[in-house]
């Protein structure tokens, strides 16, 4: 019978905690930059300028129809051939942003398209500037409409970040793999890792819930 031995895990909890902190940092930065990329992508995709739409279409389709593992390999191992060399942690961040940006673009585009034309016309009738219209009449209600899909995509991003150790970037999964290589307590380590990822996801989900209450706490228009 298998004998559980959690001692190696408890002895190295600081190492795993540091790994978890790196995962939080990496995912949070990727979410923040990814949100900006997604908004820009969605604006471009709903714009009237055709070439801009095509460029975004190519980007979105390329990223959404290829595995993340290949994307991160391409960015870390492939780009140096073109003279673009990044540290593993930077390459991991870039890969995550590029990936989540493509999914986010589609999600936010759907949100923008859900805004009725009449609402924008109402904004014009109130003499709002185009910037004001975009910010308050289009983007904010759009984000509110697609908030659940966007945040679940962000949590998925955090979970996906566990593969960045393939390019030797540091995160929770890498810390677990290093610990496993030293102590061979695979089952115990990955059990604890599973719990830690679950708690991280729960934490992010709570954070998103709070943000929703702070920013989108007004009565529904329709």
């Amino acid at each position: 019978m298998y004998r559980f031995n959690f001692q190696p895990v408890f002895d190295n909890l600081d190492m795993l905690a540091y790994g978890a902190w790196l995962t939080v940092q990496l995912s949070f930065t990727a979410m923040a930059i990814g949100l900006i990329v997604s908004i820009l992508g969605a604006v471009a995709k709903t714009s009237s300028i055709r070439p801009l739409r095509w460029i975004v279409d190519v980007y979105v389709e390329m990223i959404r129809n290829t595995p993340f593992l290949i994307q991160i390999f391409f960015i870390f191992f492939g780009l140096p051939a073109l003279g673009i060399s990044m540290s593993p942690n930077t390459a991991a961040l870039v890969a995550l942003v590029v990936n989540v940006g493509a999914y986010g673009t589609e999600i936010i585009r759907a949100g923008i398209e859900s805004i009725p034309r009449g609402q924008i016309e109402a904004g014009r009738a109130l003499a709002l500037t185009p910037t004001q219209i975009f910010r308050y009449v289009v983007l904010k209600p759009a984000l509110r409409n697609i908030y659940p899909s966007l945040t679940s995509q962000f949590i998925y991003l955090m979970l996906t970040s566990s593969v960045v150790s393939v390019i030797s970037a540091n995160d929770l999964a890498a810390a677990g793999a290093d610990l496993n290589a030293r102590t061979f307590a695979s089952f115990e380590i990955y059990l604890v890792l599973t719990i830690m990822y679950f708690l991280l996801a729960l934490g992010f989900s709570t954070l998103f819930g709070t943000l929703r209450r702070v920013f989108f706490n007004y009565p529904a228009g329709r």
């Binding site: 870390f76 191992f77 492939g78 140096p80 051939a81 060399s85 593993p88 150790s165 393939v166 390019i167 030797s168 890498a174 793999a177 290093d178 290589a181």
Partner: peptide, 18 residues
């Protein structure tokens, strides 16, 4: 020290100048 999953990835990191 950069740890990769296997020799092939470690070699790739060397060859690509990473």
């Amino acid at each position: 020290i950069r740890r990769f999953d296997d020799d092939a990835s470690a070699v790739q990191a060397l060859m690509s100048g990473q």
